[in-house]
Amino acid sequence: MNLEKLKPGVVEILQKPDIEINEKLKNLCQYLQDNVSYYNWVGYYFANHDNQTLHLGPYVGAETDHTVIPFGKGICGQVAVSNQNFVVPDVAAQDNYIACSITVKSEIVVPLFVRGENIGQIDIDSHVIDPFTESDERFLEFVNKEVAKLY
């Protein structure tokens, strides 16, 4: 998968005028899921720093009960604290993992920074064990830099 080829589509989606930010993010999630075979659930969580919680934003994929996640809990909650990318090749090997579905085998979470503050993250689940590479990390960092321009 050449993720570089997807960059112009990311920019196009996010720069469309007269579309609300949540719709742009939902369209972006759909674009990523449609174009990367192992991206089976794609969504954004946004931080409430006062309450130390993450709140589910736009996403595509199976419904989830995890609409609010405390900082430190699960992969997303750990990224809210560490401010670092987190790649989980096999969720079954993770102690602090919140199971969304038995079909999820791996996960990648990349923080979203706006003016130096971690305001949220993109979260991607896969039904494949260990599909995420450094290319995915760099690509999702690019995606989030483009998303940050909306804030």
Results as ranks from 00 to 15, higher is better:
97 Y>F: 13
68 V>T: 13
14 L>K: 06
53 T>S: 08
91 V>D: 09
148 A>D: 08
56 L>N: 03
81 V>L: 14
14 L>H: 08
142 F>V: 08
130 D>H: 09
33 Q>L: 04
75 I>K: 12
150 L>P: 12
83 N>G: 09
95 D>I: 06
137 E>R: 15
64 T>E: 07
119 I>N: 07
19 I>A: 02
113 F>P: 12
124 I>F: 02
35 N>F: 03
107 E>C: 02
4 E>W: 02
138 R>L: 05
48 N>E: 07
60 V>D: 14
80 A>D: 12
145 K>M: 11
27 N>D: 15
3 L>W: 01
12 E>I: 06
26 K>L: 11
51 N>T: 11
53 T>L: 01
108 I>C: 01
130 D>V: 04
41 W>H: 02
86 F>R: 12
128 V>I: 04
18 D>T: 05
132 F>M: 00
73 K>Q: 15
97 Y>S: 12
118 N>Q: 09
13 I>P: 01
8 P>S: 15
111 P>A: 07
117 E>K: 10
108 I>A: 02
12 E>F: 14
73 K>W: 04
26 K>Q: 15
107 E>N: 13
72 G>T: 10
27 N>R: 08
7 K>F: 03
87 V>L: 14
134 E>F: 04
128 V>T: 09
16 K>V: 11
105 K>A: 03
10 V>C: 02
130 D>Y: 00
73 K>V: 08
139 F>D: 13
142 F>A: 14
121 Q>M: 10
